[in-house]
């Protein structure tokens, strides 16, 4: 029987959660025995090659590409896990949510104190995905099955969650793995 597949992506996140995943260290060899990686920055596969058992989502949705990728994940994965606080509630990227988009862009590209842009050009290549009016946590865009809190969730937390999901066992997260003070 072929191994179950997992896919991962980083939307409006900082790749910190992916770094945390790599922090499982030598256990990654064990993980490879358990699963195959499909679409993921880890193996640089860009498009889904088939049905996946688990999708790990880092980051919320800040632009249309994020939405598109997240919806693709929902279509291809049996279980979606929001990994980290950005995916769960938008977090730092969502700090722009109380400021109108136009003001945000102008501050970033025209008026910010460290900006040198004498021609006052706003980046607007049609290849660039359009920003959303605000940053959405993943569960506001698609149905999310599980959430792993943390910024980032520790490697052990991610490991425990993956092993539990893959073995269809109840997840045990001792207090040390989910305390963040």
């Amino acid at each position: 029987m072929s191994k179950p597949k997992i896919a991962t992506t980083s939307l409006a996140g900082c790749f910190g959660c992916h770094m945390s995943l790599l922090d499982i260290d030598e256990r990654i060899l064990k993980l490879i025995e358990l699963v195959d990686f499909d679409k993921s920055p880890i193996d640089d596969i860009k498009e889904f090659t088939g049905r996946c058992a688990i999708g790990l989502i880092e980051g919320g949705c800040a632009n249309e590409d994020n939405v598109h990728v997240l919806q693709e994940f929902r279509k291809h994965c049996d279980i979606l896990v929001a990994v980290g606080d950005c995916a769960i509630m938008g977090d730092i990227p969502a700090m722009r949510n109380n400021i109108p988009l136009k003001e945000c862009l102008e501050e970033a590209y025209l008026n910010g104190p460290s900006i040198h842009n004498p021609e006052k050009v706003m980046p607007n290549d049609k290849e660039l995905p359009l920003c959303l009016d605000r940053v959405y946590p993943c569960h506001e865009v698609v149905k999310i099955d599980y959430s792993l809190p943390g910024c980032p969730p520790g490697a052990d937390t991610i490991w425990q969650a993956l092993v539990a999901l893959l073995n269809n066992k109840p997840l045990e997260l001792p207090y040390e793995l989910i305390k963040y003070d």
Partner: peptide, 13 residues
């Protein structure tokens, strides 16, 4: 399809 019916991409864009 697992999508959130409350999310309105047109409005968001």
């Amino acid at each position: 399809d697992g999508m959130q019916p409350t999310f309105d991409i047109r409005k968001a864009l």
